[in-house]
Design a binder for these strands. Structure first.
Lengths: 138, 138
DNA sequence: ATAAGAATAATACACATTATCATTCATTAA
DNA sequence: TTAATGAATGATAATGTGTATTATTCTTAT
């Protein structure tokens, strides 16, 4: 019944972790694949998927199951919230203090064993808003 | 530039709406398809997808982009939150007052034009917890 | 009744993710 | 050091969810 930190740090896993930690965005598996491939050109896409999943299960990284059709990954594992641009799909952190007490409230009002929560804002990012304003004045 | 309430209520759309309103769960498109097919055996899956999407755009229903690989649909359109069972994938409403003021906070601390938010709790539903307890005592 | 447009059903397609499996790599025990 | 064992990888096939296409059917207005 061990579920933590006994995974071997293969070169592939190390590079995946390093590349993920490098960026402040929240890349999809494919984007991670592209980043990693610059250093390990022969790595397989399956390996990236498999290891991202594994590291997320291990608590080493965070798997974001946000809106949109792709899952995203985050090297920062402490509780924080996100905002997603409905135009371009980009996901950013939102600077808003965590509210761990929500879990207790949810536990009180449901018959679930509550494990956690996530808040996802949606909106239009600055880039997309600017692009829109630009094409409107044309 | 109309985006509201001028869609024709075809028999298919009516049945989709009725079946969705009947359940308190948050079915996937495929589940809606199965429900609707009992009354309209010749309906196509594409029709279900197309119309769920259309009605969501229209604000008649809610499209939930929660964790897991499938989108879910909800006949209740006012702001409320959800909890998802990480075992079976089921999604239930959580009885927790809406916090619309979060949008303002998010707007203050980001350069997004904030449109809304959603809170998704995760946990283990009673059924799954009971099943687990049962097999543990065997 | 007829023409014009909208909606449907069937099907093909696209994309993200998972499964399979032969090969390679790492580790352990002689 | 070497043989054996199991884990991880890379290549590829398969699956599943959702979207696009298109010929046909249905509505509606005349």
């Amino acid at each position: 019944m061990q579920s933590q930190s006994d995974i071997r740090l293969t070169p592939q896993r190390q590079v995946i972790l390093e590349e993920l930690a490098k960026v402040k965005t929240h890349p999809t598996a494919n984007e991670v694949y592209d980043m990693v491939r610059k250093r390990l050109p022969r790595i397989g896409l399956g390996t990236v998927y498999r290891n991202l999943e594994l590291m997320a299960d291990n608590g080493m990284i965070l798997k974001l199951e946000v809106g949109g059709s792709q899952k995203r990954f985050d090297a920062t594992t402490d509780l924080h919230y996100h905002i997603r641009c409905t135009r371009c799909g980009k996901v950013d952190d939102i600077e808003l203090g965590a509210m761990p007490q929500l879990d207790q409230l949810a536990a009180d009002t449901s018959d679930y064993q509550v494990l956690g929560h996530h808040i996802e804002f949606s909106g239009i990012c600055k880039t997309c808003a600017d692009n829109q304003a630009e094409s409107a004045t044309n």
